[in-house]
Simulated assay, not measured.
Amino acid sequence: MEFEVYNVDSTTQLGINLGKLLQAGDIICLTGDLGAGKTHITKGIALGLGINDNITSPTFTIVNEYEGGRLKLNHFDVYRVSDPDEIYAIGFDDYIFSDAVSIIEWANYIEEILPQDLLHISIKKDLEKGEDYRKIILTPYGDRYNYIKEL
């Protein structure tokens, strides 16, 4: 599925709509350039899950955990991970194979350790169409993500 958005609010709203559909154990993998909107869509997903905390990118801690919504949220940022062993050291499998929703920013950096069933979200900028324009592409891997057709 492809979406075109022209401002941050639309990116966040797409995240909210997705967050309302997410199920326990879902794994969302985000890719895109710096400033593409990965954290904005994550903020929207959190809101859609009913989490009202201030969502920030866990660049230096690798993972932030949020509760208080209908599902727990594990938010990873693996931008600074240089070796998959680093992510295993924090208990990566325990996080992603739980009942929480796991969102992984910069997932392309750890492709070799990701499970086969996941929802990949690619966010692409096109400055010719405007500074805030984004093309957001959702690609499900595995049957569990068929529900995104409801977006």
Score class of each variant (00 low, 15 high):
residue 80 R to E: 11
residue 3 F to N: 01
residue 46 A to Y: 02
residue 140 P to V: 06
residue 16 I to E: 13
residue 132 D to K: 04
residue 33 D to E: 14
residue 74 N to T: 02
residue 106 W to D: 04
residue 41 I to R: 04
residue 88 Y to A: 11
residue 43 K to H: 13
residue 105 E to Q: 05
residue 94 D to K: 12
residue 115 P to F: 03
residue 116 Q to V: 15
residue 89 A to H: 15
residue 32 G to T: 07
residue 87 I to N: 01
residue 80 R to P: 04
residue 56 T to N: 11
residue 54 N to H: 12
residue 124 K to F: 13
residue 2 E to F: 08
residue 32 G to A: 03
residue 144 R to P: 04
residue 13 Q to Y: 14
residue 101 V to G: 01
residue 121 I to L: 01
residue 53 D to I: 11
residue 29 C to P: 14
residue 44 G to K: 05
residue 26 D to E: 11
residue 85 D to E: 10
residue 126 D to P: 04
residue 122 S to H: 10
residue 40 H to V: 15
residue 89 A to F: 09
residue 80 R to A: 08
residue 83 D to E: 09
residue 118 L to I: 15
residue 118 L to Y: 15
residue 122 S to T: 11
residue 107 A to T: 08
residue 142 G to V: 07
residue 91 G to V: 14
residue 71 L to H: 03
residue 74 N to D: 13
residue 55 I to D: 03
residue 15 G to W: 00
residue 58 P to N: 08
residue 93 D to G: 11
residue 136 I to G: 06
residue 90 I to H: 06
residue 10 S to H: 02
residue 107 A to W: 00
residue 66 Y to D: 07
residue 115 P to D: 05
residue 55 I to E: 02
residue 80 R to F: 01
residue 101 V to W: 04
residue 139 T to S: 15
residue 96 I to P: 00
residue 120 H to Q: 07
residue 12 T to H: 15
residue 62 I to V: 04
residue 108 N to Q: 15
residue 29 C to Q: 12
residue 77 D to S: 01
residue 129 K to E: 09
residue 40 H to S: 09
residue 58 P to D: 02
residue 126 D to W: 00
residue 86 E to D: 02
residue 108 N to A: 11
residue 82 S to I: 13
residue 53 D to T: 04
residue 1 M to V: 07
residue 3 F to S: 02
residue 7 N to H: 03
residue 32 G to I: 08
residue 100 A to S: 07
residue 113 I to A: 13
residue 129 K to R: 02
residue 96 I to H: 06
residue 33 D to W: 06
residue 99 D to N: 12
residue 134 R to C: 01
residue 115 P to L: 13
residue 70 R to Y: 07
residue 82 S to E: 15
residue 147 Y to S: 00
residue 148 I to R: 00
residue 35 G to C: 00
residue 61 T to V: 05
residue 110 I to S: 06
residue 149 K to Q: 13
residue 67 E to V: 10
residue 112 E to Y: 07
residue 89 A to K: 14
residue 76 F to I: 03
residue 29 C to W: 05
residue 82 S to Y: 14
residue 119 L to H: 01
residue 15 G to R: 01
residue 61 T to I: 05
residue 149 K to R: 15
residue 77 D to R: 07
residue 44 G to Y: 10
residue 122 S to C: 11
residue 82 S to D: 15
residue 48 G to L: 10
